[in-house]
């Protein structure tokens, strides 16, 4: 009885052991030499194989980077951390780059009465967009069936209760996959540090927009006039923010009558003057476009916090670097 169990176990075990040792030795002898840098680069990459770099996956990107065919800054999910590590491995200098995040340029909420028809087909934005341009009243807005959500490798997109895709900017790595799959093309990559977004993509005229959406841009252009930094221009009945010029002062957010320009006002910054450093030169008072700094020449200046919008202009102008923006 015991032998019936013992012999198979022992014989198979010994055979496996012999073969295993043989293979281990062979793998040493026939080991293929790969550039160790490829392996190192591969280790620091996120490994999500998102394709944001334009290569087939992290493996082929690592090879391309080491071969010098790709930029070390091409990995969007990795961000500046990974960039720095890759640059370190390869021994090349690298400039830090602004992190981009995806943003769905539609704030919804599209109520039932605003929908063109009841859709019961395949649950995908691409399918519904093929049926007379989608079931929503607005032919530009988010369809909310989650094609972007399903394609996000980082689980950073959710569908809100209003049926609008929302990006979790902490999780978003800016790989850009969602921007490609959205049939409406309303997901854009925007600088993560800039909090002001135009959450409307409708190119219709204001009157038409009003008929189907309460939060859409009506083309009043108040924002263009309100912006003191000429950062907003108007194109296709929509405001366009030039993020190189935008200071994040959020005046446009305050002024927008339909709130289609979004920004978290609670995150608005304010300037504060270091009283020891201030020499009372009044440069900041002249520079401030919002009359938010007061004080006499040769005296310490003071920031009026209810007027300050945190645009940072004064901090740039202050000759003594005594102003910080927080």
């Amino acid at each position: 009885m015991l032998e019936n169990i013992l012999w198979p176990v022992v014989s198979l075990g010994i055979m496996s052991l012999v073969f295993g040792v043989g293979l281990a030795l062979a793998s040493k002898k026939f080991a293929v030499e790969i550039d160790p840098k490829v392996e190192e680069v591969r280790q620091v990459l996120p490994g999500a194989n998102c394709g944001g770099c334009g290569f087939a996956g992290c493996d082929s990107y690592a090879e391309a980077v080491v071969a010098g065919e790709a930029s070390a800054a091409a990995c969007p999910p990795g961000g500046s951390d990974v960039m720095a590590k890759i640059a370190d491995i390869l021994g090349i200098p690298l400039d830090a780059q602004e992190r981009n995040v995806a943003s769905v340029m539609c704030a919804g909420p599209c109520t039932e009465e605003n929908k063109k028809y009841q859709y019961h087909g395949i649950a995908g934005c691409r399918a519904v967009s093929m049926l007379s341009g989608g079931n929503k009243g607005c032919s530009y807005g988010c369809l909310g069936l989650g094609t972007c959500k399903n394609n996000c490798p980082f689980d950073a997109i959710s569908i809100s209760g209003d049926g609008i895709a929302v990006v979790n900017e902490d999780k978003c790595t800016g790989c850009g996959r969602c921007t490609e799959v959205c049939p409406r093309g309303i997901i854009q990559l925007v600088p993560a540090s800039q909090g002001v977004r135009v959450l409307c993509s409708s190119k219709d005229r204001g009157k038409t927009v009003k008929e189907y959406c309460k939060v859409g841009c009506i083309g009043c252009q108040i924002c263009v006039r309100a912006c003191k930094f000429d950062a907003i221009t108007f194109e296709d009945n929509l405001p366009k923010i030039d993020y190189d010029k935008c200071t994040g002062c959020m005046v446009c957010v305050e002024k927008c009558p339909t709130k289609s320009i979004h920004g978290d006002l609670s995150k608005r910054k304010t300037a504060s003057i270091d009283q020891d450093g201030c020499i009372g030169c009044t440069v900041c008072i002249k520079a401030c476009k919002f009359d938010a700094i007061e004080g006499e020449r040769k005296q310490k200046h003071k920031v009026l916090e209810d007027k300050c919008v945190g645009c940072g202009l004064c901090a740039v102008k202050c000759p003594k670097d005594a102003i910080t923006i927080q």
């Binding site: 198979l12 055979m15 496996s16 073969f19 043989g22 293979l23 062979a26």
Partner: peptide, 9 residues
């Protein structure tokens, strides 16, 4: 088992 080992090799 034999075949698998050989193939690996």
């Amino acid at each position: 088992l034999v075949i698998a080992t050989l193939v690996q090799f």
